[in-house]
Amino acid sequence: MENPATERTPLVIAAEINMITCQTKKILLAGAIEIGCRLQEAKALVKHGEWGKWLESVSYSQKTAERLTSMSNMTYTQALLLLGLPAEEREEFIEQNDVGGMTTKKLQQALQDRDKANQEKDQALQENQAFKKGLKAIDSTISELKKEQAKAASMPTNPENVKAEAFSASQPALPTHNLKAEHDPDAHIKYVEKCNACCKTIADTFFDLTTALTNLAHVDPNLKEEKRKEANRLIEYMAETIKEWPPPKKPLRVHS
């Protein structure tokens, strides 16, 4: 019977590959530091104007040489810290920061600040997407309300409501709600609960809205202002509508 300790499984093989990959990266980083030291040494010896030509002898571009030279002052601990970054992000980080002139503590802080900034950016983008989705739903709701208003305006008017209709012609039309007759003596309980739930939803959504606007201000101030104005128009519309409801000029139609 085969010894379980030596049994070859996909999990064991994956662990071995990951270990070899990690060791290889460490060797490459250590090698990059050593190469950087030698490039720095060679640059001090090569005559002025011949640096680019000399680099051809080691098959390095000036950009690559500069990146490797900047690593020459790094310690092995600093190299291991950079090992945690993906290769393409590592090169960008080295180009944007004076890694060679940093202490290990400052490098750790710079990496933490980078991670925090990326997290905030991702969160802001996610909230912006949610904000756009919410505005799309709001726009759809307003469109439906406008359709109801247009439909209500085209219906025949009772003689006793002629004056009210004349007045409403000069005012923004409010949505008309078609309600069924309520025979349940406890119906008020249901509607109070509905009002409470809606108010909580509005409050929660408003908090999400202001949070999204705050984060959007850091990502794109112009887009933030555009969305703030859109939200403000909607809020003004809602505030004007709820001032007196139901609207006296258009009594609610009750269908029995």
Results as ranks from 00 to 15, higher is better:
residue 139 D to E: 12
residue 187 A to Q: 05
residue 206 F to H: 09
residue 29 L to C: 06
residue 199 C to F: 13
residue 43 K to R: 13
residue 1 M to K: 08
residue 105 K to Q: 14
residue 165 E to F: 09
residue 206 F to Y: 07
residue 223 L to A: 06
residue 93 F to W: 03
residue 80 L to Q: 08
residue 72 S to D: 00
residue 232 N to Y: 13
residue 6 T to C: 08
residue 196 N to A: 15
residue 127 E to A: 14
residue 190 K to Y: 08
residue 218 H to C: 10
residue 24 T to Q: 15
residue 232 N to I: 10
residue 210 T to K: 03
residue 79 A to F: 05
residue 96 Q to R: 11
residue 251 P to M: 01
residue 11 L to Y: 12
residue 234 L to K: 04
residue 51 W to V: 07
residue 159 P to Q: 10
residue 115 D to V: 06
residue 111 L to R: 00
residue 86 P to I: 01
residue 167 F to C: 11
residue 87 A to T: 07
residue 233 R to I: 11
residue 194 K to F: 05
residue 20 I to Y: 13
residue 246 P to C: 00
residue 126 Q to F: 14
residue 150 A to M: 04
residue 205 T to I: 09
residue 75 T to Q: 01
residue 151 K to Q: 14
residue 51 W to R: 02
residue 40 Q to G: 15
residue 103 T to E: 03
residue 245 W to I: 06
residue 212 A to T: 01
residue 31 G to N: 08
residue 125 L to Q: 14
residue 18 N to R: 15
residue 53 K to H: 11
residue 195 C to P: 02
residue 11 L to R: 14
residue 139 D to P: 03
residue 120 E to M: 11
residue 240 E to P: 02
residue 112 Q to D: 13
residue 6 T to G: 09
residue 245 W to Q: 04
residue 165 E to G: 12
residue 36 G to K: 00
residue 243 K to C: 02
residue 136 K to G: 13
residue 48 H to W: 14
residue 109 Q to P: 02
residue 109 Q to S: 13
residue 228 R to L: 12
residue 151 K to S: 11
residue 43 K to N: 09
residue 170 S to I: 10
residue 73 N to G: 10
residue 49 G to D: 06
residue 184 D to G: 04
residue 200 K to G: 09
residue 141 T to R: 08
residue 185 P to M: 00
residue 24 T to H: 14
residue 149 Q to L: 05
residue 148 E to H: 09
residue 180 K to D: 11
residue 47 K to C: 09
residue 139 D to M: 07
residue 40 Q to M: 14
residue 62 Q to H: 08
residue 8 R to G: 05
residue 206 F to L: 08
residue 90 R to L: 04
residue 55 L to R: 04
residue 156 P to F: 01
residue 238 M to Q: 05
residue 254 V to K: 04
residue 188 H to F: 12
residue 70 S to G: 06
residue 30 A to R: 09
residue 2 E to I: 06
residue 91 E to V: 07
residue 126 Q to K: 13
residue 58 V to Q: 06
residue 150 A to P: 02
residue 205 T to E: 14
residue 64 T to G: 09
residue 160 E to F: 08
residue 230 E to C: 04
residue 146 K to I: 05
residue 149 Q to E: 12
residue 226 E to V: 09
residue 222 N to S: 13
residue 221 P to W: 01
residue 161 N to I: 07
